[in-house]
């Protein structure tokens, strides 16, 4: 029989509720989401695209958080392989799932933006093709997880995909520079530090990026906890 103190310790080690920090990220993110929307709708129109350019405030944070999420999956997959602690695998899984949501948002808003500006919803140009491949790889990540019943083998196989799949993130990001593409190059170029954007638009974009990052952090912590509860049920 377990003593009262031991039960308490077990509960602390295996929480079944999100902690305060998770609620802070989620609460603040949801609270600031309408503020970000207001800033996006108050930002000036673009001289060529008019109000269409405002899709950027969803499209760019979605794509960046997708890239970031897949990077976190890469990092925690590596940590899992080195330390063999299932906790790392749960963060990798959570981040890949949230990354798919954000990357999906970037793809959908991108298609809605492409039709009125480029003239088509989709074309097989380098940025779009590499991003579609990226998306498909992480869908495969979850199908692979579902297909393997042995938990340890599942975690190792998933970690391999989480590490190898990440190769495509820098390829997707730099595709617009490496190859001839229809997609424009980066407006905030992280490789040169150049910014080709009106300050008022930049502020709105950075604010939305901040809000999306808060939501991402909240979602990942929440999803990792759910994964921990799932793991416990699987073991029991």
């Amino acid at each position: 029989m377990l003593g009262a103190v031991e039960v308490k310790m077990l509960k602390a080690a295996q929480p079944d509720r999100p902690d305060a920090l998770t609620w802070v990220f989620l609460g603040l993110g949801l609270l600031l989401l309408p503020v970000g929307l207001y800033l996006a709708l108050a930002a000036p129109p673009d001289v060529n695209q008019g109000y269409l350019a405002r899709i950027m405030y969803l499209h760019v944070p979605g794509a960046w958080l997708g890239y970031l999420a897949f990077f976190v999956t890469f990092l925690y997959s590596l940590l899992y392989l080195f330390r063999q602690d299932p906790r790392y695998d749960r963060v990798a899984l959570a981040s890949a799932e949230i990354g798919l949501v954000f990357m999906g948002l970037a793809l959908v808003t991108g298609m809605l933006w492409a039709r009125p500006t480029w003239g088509v919803y989709w074309t097989w140009e380098p940025r779009l093709t590499t991003t579609a491949i990226l998306f498909a790889v992480y869908v495969g990540y979850f199908l692979l997880r579902g297909a393997i019943e042995d938990p340890e083998l599942r975690r190792k196989a998933a970690a391999a995909v989480g590490i190898l799949g990440f190769i495509n993130v820098p390829i997707s990001y730099l595709s617009v520079k490496w190859w001839r593409s229809l997609h424009q190059t980066q407006s905030i170029d992280l490789t040169t530090g150049k910014i080709h954007m009106d300050p008022a638009m930049l502020q709105a974009l950075l604010f939305n990026l901040f809000v999306f990052t808060l939501l991402y952090l909240g979602f990942v912590r929440f999803r990792s906890l759910l994964a921990a509860i799932e793991d416990r049920q699987e073991e029991a």
Binding site: P44, P45, D46, V47, N48, Q49, G50, Y51, A53, M56, T117, W118, G119, V120, T123, L182, Q184, T185, Q186, S187, H196, M197, D198, A200, M201
Partner: peptide, 20 residues
């Protein structure tokens, strides 16, 4: 058969008096 328009990566607000 298909005409696609490329646009630049620069975003600028229109000058005063030239909003859509």
């Amino acid at each position: 058969t298909n005409l696609l328009v490329k646009h630049s990566e620069a975003y600028q607000a229109p000058k005063a008096g030239w909003t859509p």
